[in-house]
């Protein structure tokens, strides 16, 4: 499988279809619910799992090497800025983890066009955007000034 979708939870909204980097989450024309059409191209990246508003997607480890009976589930909460994980081993042991995902509000990044336009002198230099300031070092952007050598190190 890798990912699979629970029939009773999925409402066919298509968020998983939109996000899957492998283009393998599709809406089944008959059931009108999502299905992984190519499990052997699934990376178990969980992008769809994280994106599903109904928590309808789960993962069953690759059948050709993962024994059954386990689960690895997550809940990604953008407003709280966290992701929580619950791992269940085949023998029933459980582990929980929580990590932060972002330190600033979603959508808050200042657009590059909101910065004042750079000068011609900056354009002609080797500096990139926000340099040298963002390097946080004295003396500006390092420049190589030594002599060239050729041959074996």
């Amino acid at each position: 499988m890798p990912t699979f979708v629970y029939m009773t939870s999925c409402d066919g909204c298509g968020h998983c279809v939109d996000i899957c980097p492998s283009d393998i989450m599709h809406i089944d024309p008959v059931t009108r619910r999502a299905v992984n059409i190519e499990p052997n191209f699934c990376w178990e990246c969980y992008s769809c799992v994280k994106a599903c508003p109904q928590n309808a997607i789960d993962v069953r480890g690759y059948a050709d090497f993962a024994p059954m009976g386990h689960s690895v589930r997550c809940l990604r909460e953008e407003e709280k800025g966290t992701i929580s994980w619950k791992l269940k081993f085949r023998d029933g042991r459980v582990k929980d983890f929580v990590s932060p995902i972002r330190t600033t509000p979603w959508g808050s990044i200042k657009a590059v066009t909101e910065y004042s336009a750079p000068s011609d002198a900056a354009f002609d230099s080797q500096e990139l955007a926000h340099e040298p300031e963002y390097l946080k070092i004295e003396g500006g952007l390092p420049t190589y000034s030594g002599k060239f050598k050729e041959g074996v190190v």
Partner: peptide, 25 residues
């Protein structure tokens, strides 16, 4: 231990799946 597991959950979740499936702690 937390670093070890979160390291997978943060970038290669499939490895956590493999270990949970195989009872590898």
């Amino acid at each position: 231990e937390v670093i070890g597991w979160e390291n997978f959950l943060g970038m290669t979740i499939g490895q956590a799946v493999v270990w949970a499936a195989n009872n590898i702690d």
